[in-house]
């Protein structure tokens, strides 16, 4: 079953997500969402009958961990791949809601 969104639904989604989008961005976002929906429809149409369960043998992992701190060494590399940084901070889109 294929779903599509129109400009109006796209704007509603943006509002629900508290995102401000400029008029010239609406089509781009609508098309992106429709691409995702197309892909979902494609997956939904696959015939999976008779496909065996995907599983593998592994030891049961613990479901809790001890309270011991570890520092993570690759932070700088990770930061360099972030879309936008500002000093030590990550930059994120402006929030329209009051905190």
């Amino acid at each position: 079953m294929k779903m599509t969104v129109d400009r109006e639904v796209t704007l509603r989604m943006a509002r629900a997500a508290q995102l401000r989008i400029e008029p010239d961005q609406v089509d781009y976002m609508m098309n992106s969402i429709n691409d995702i929906l197309d892909f979902c429809a494609l997956v939904g149409d696959l015939d999976c009958a008779g496909t065996p369960d995907f599983s593998w043998k592994m030891k049961k992992l613990p479901d809790r961990r001890p309270d011991i701190a570890h520092d993570w060494s690759d932070r700088d590399e990770f930061k360099s791949s972030a879309p936008a940084i500002d000093g030590d901070f990550f930059r994120v889109p402006k929030i329209n809601a009051e905190e």
Partner: peptide, 24 residues
Amino acid sequence: TPNSNTCPICLAVPGTLPLLNDCA
């Protein structure tokens, strides 16, 4: 320093999995 106490899990890097702290 901002973001110095972070790791792929609390930065939500795809593919990471949370694991519950026993002490909590």
